[in-house]
Computed example of a mutant assay.
Amino acid sequence: MKRKKGGEGGASWMDTYGDMVTLLLCFFVLLYSMSTLDQQKWQQVVQSFNPDAIEEMMQASGNNGPNANTDKPGGSPAAQATTQEQVDAMLEQLYEQLTSYTQAQGTEENISVTKGDGYVFLSFNEAVFFDGDSYILRQDGQEVLNEVSAMLDKAAGGIDEIKVLGHTAQSNPQMPNNPSLDRFLASNRATVVLVYLQEHSSLDPARLISVGYGQWRPVASNDSPEGLAKNRRVELIVTGLDVENAMGDSIAHYYTKRDGGPAKEDASALEDAPTSTASEADSSAKPS
Score class of each variant (00 low, 15 high):
Val211Gly: 03
Pro176Thr: 01
His200Arg: 03
Ser221Arg: 10
Arg258Pro: 00
Asp182Ile: 05
Glu161Asn: 15
Gln174Tyr: 12
Ala186Arg: 02
Lys264Met: 14
Leu152Ile: 03
Tyr213Ile: 13
His200Trp: 02
Pro205Glu: 06
Tyr213Phe: 15
Met151Gly: 01
Met151Lys: 07
Val192Lys: 05
Ala252Phe: 00
Glu235Ser: 11
Val148Trp: 04
Thr239Tyr: 11
Asn188Lys: 13
Pro225Cys: 00
Val192Arg: 01
Gly158Ala: 08
Leu181Cys: 09
Met175Gln: 14
Arg183Glu: 11
Gly227Trp: 00
Asp259Leu: 13
Val192Asp: 08
Val164His: 03
Gly166Trp: 04
Ser201Asp: 04
Glu226Asp: 12
Glu235His: 05
Ala252Lys: 02
Leu165Arg: 03
Met175Ile: 13
Asn172Val: 05
Asp160Pro: 08
His253Gly: 12
Val219Pro: 04
Asn222Gln: 10
Asn222Trp: 11
Lys154His: 07
His200Ile: 08
Asp204Lys: 10
Gly166Leu: 07
Ile162Glu: 01
Asp153Ser: 05
Asp204Tyr: 04
Asp242Ile: 12
Val238Glu: 01
Gly227Ile: 01
Ser202Asn: 15
Thr168Tyr: 02
Glu147Val: 13
Asp160Ala: 15
Arg189Asn: 04
Ser250Cys: 14
Gln174Phe: 12
Glu161Gln: 13
Pro218Arg: 01
Pro225Gln: 00
Ile251Val: 15
Pro205Gly: 08
Ser180Ile: 14
Gly240Lys: 03
Leu236Ile: 07
Gln215Lys: 09
Glu147Asn: 14
Val164Ile: 15
Glu235Asn: 10
Ser250Trp: 02
Leu203Phe: 04
Ser201Gln: 03
Asp182His: 06
Val193Ala: 00
Ala169Thr: 15
Gly212Val: 06
Tyr254Ala: 12
Pro176Val: 05
Lys257Cys: 09
Val148Thr: 01
Val234Asn: 09
Glu244Phe: 00
Arg207Val: 08
Glu235Thr: 05
Ser210Trp: 09
Ala150Met: 15
Tyr254Asp: 11
Lys230Ile: 05
Val243Asn: 09
Ala229Leu: 11
Leu185Ala: 03
Ile251Phe: 02
Ser202Ile: 11
Pro218Lys: 10
Val195Ile: 09
Phe184Tyr: 14
Lys257Arg: 11
Leu228Trp: 04
Val164Gln: 07
Val192Ile: 10
Pro173Cys: 08
